[in-house]
């Protein structure tokens, strides 16, 4: 169990369903958020950007923990699959962080009056983006794969301190960014008509994260095991069919 081969086979069975579920929930969330959620009394329609901005930021932070923890598991217990998770999580996390920064900038212009400001929230989020890029680059830094992975995992672990800083930055310091709308301890400070599509989008982004991670891990597994007999067999079996 927990071998790359085992994961490849079992994930192949889940993948079509997960992809379908991801697609359906994001489509519903997007249509609901763009067309059916009421506009905000103060911000008008620019508020609709929240349906991308909040789920992307959320998964960018969660994804960092997933990457760092699997990096630690790969270092300590030398589990191959954990290493594959770390490697696949980095570009997905970087993309989600980029989406969070971009949608934030585009939302900032009509609400704050500027695309960018160096406040604690936005700066720490930019640092997160660079941490993800650092992990991606370090994985390719040394010709010895083991050394590269170790260096990348260490950077990922050192960077975990940034996650609580991002999350609490709006409470610890004076920032232009407002405090969190969705809190762990109390009800969201948002009307239910607006919150329901947001919940759908957060679920959709979670599903997207899992699906994207699995798809990326499967490609990485095939690459790493390309010289093994089971991958060769799989490739030759796919020869007559259209490989997906």
């Amino acid at each position: 169990m927990a071998s790359p081969r085992w994961f490849y086979q079992i994930s192949g069975r889940w993948l079509p369903w997960l992809s379908l579920l991801t697609f359906v929930s994001i489509i519903i969330g997007v249509i609901w958020g763009l067309g059916f959620a009421p506009q905000d009394a103060k911000q008008g329609n620019s508020f609709r950007i929240i349906y991308i901005h909040v789920p992307a930021s959320f998964l960018a932070l969660v994804g960092y923990y997933i990457m760092a923890i699997s990096g630690a598991i790969a270092i300590i217990w030398k589990i191959k699959l954990a290493d594959v998770v770390m490697k696949s999580a980095a570009p997905i996390g970087a993309s989600l962080t980029f989406i969070a920064l971009l949608t934030g900038a585009v939302w900032g212009k009509p609400t704050w009056g500027t695309y960018w400001i160096w406040d604690a929230r936005i700066t720490s989020m930019l640092i997160l983006f660079f941490l993800y890029l650092g992990v991606i680059v370090l994985q390719k830094a040394y010709s010895a794969q083991g050394l590269s992975n170790k260096a990348a995992a260490l950077l990922a672990l050192v960077g975990t301190i940034n996650i609580p800083i991002i999350y609490k930055s709006v409470d610890w310091w004076y920032t232009l960014h407002q405090p969190a709308t969705i809190k762990f301890t109390e009800a969201p400070s948002m009307h239910p008509d607006m919150f329901q599509p947001l919940l759908i989008m957060i679920i959709g982004f979670y599903l997207f994260y899992v699906t994207a991670l699995i798809v990326s891990m499967r490609a990485e597994i095939i690459f790493r095991e390309r010289n093994t007999s089971w991958v060769k067999e799989l490739a030759l079996n796919l020869k007559d069919k259209r490989p997906i």
Binding site: Q39, G113, T181
Partner: peptide, 17 residues
Amino acid sequence: SILAKHDENYMPPEVTY
């Protein structure tokens, strides 16, 4: 220069009204 800062509460216009 002046920037606007908004709060974390979101509400439809009719509810505010």
